[in-house]
Amino acid sequence: MARGTLIELGLLALASILLVLGFGLPESGPDTFEFGPRPAGGLRVVTWNVGGAGSGDGRALGEDHVPAVVETLRLLDADLVLLQELRDRKQLERIARALGENVRFEAIDDGPDCIGALAPRAHLFQLTTGEWEGRRPLALLVHPEVGPALHVVVLHAHPWSARRRNHEIGQALDLLVPATLTPARLLVGDLNIDVGRHGRNDLFTNDEPRDVAAYNYLARHLVDVGAGKGPTAEPDRRLDYVFASPELDPVQAGPWLGRRVGDMDHHPLVADFVHAAGE
């Protein structure tokens, strides 16, 4: 065999090995979130858009799925549950009662859907949000049974308009900025933004730059505790977030994929914290 042919075969063999290595090794995807018991003395927060994708009676949570939601929330055993796309305040109350007699709840019901908060082990105080443009968030002062109080804003940002959700996210963060608030702050909910290295480079809209700007605005003030733990919604999208102030030390966070409830397209996002000061 000619020496030149041997050289070419050698190069191709080397290329094959490298390509097999490159394409064959498993993709290093996001770290998977391994759900565990809530940290002792810590704080577990769950945010969940319980609306159904294409549910027969609208986008809000269907009544037939309420028992499954209750069962899941019992299993997750959170201190603070923040739900979006509820049908109304009464539906939230039914869920609260199903979880226990002492479960406190608050809701805001003046948008296209109802946003609710449930606190099996905390006291809740709803705060006013003043003048608002777009979908109004639920603003809360939360006093957990253990540890200091925290301010929480729950938002379900506009699903279709990047411009609107950008404003809503900005305004929601502005609620948490004043220095008079407690240092521990959370901004949670279905923010409807999906950014990252594998962005879609959509040729037809400028949604991505706007969403990126919104995400960056949040990321400069708060810590995205669920980052790198994979998608929170189907198909393969990360739309649900828990942004926390540095005073809250995340132990673990990520979407809980244990069970699909009906035709819902979001998973519950679980975040466990301890206070940075070890309180």
Partner: peptide
């Protein structure tokens, strides 16, 4: 670095 149109990173 922040997530952005350059897609440098997934998070800050």
């Amino acid at each position: 670095l922040y997530p952005g149109v350059l897609q440098m990173t997934d998070r800050h």
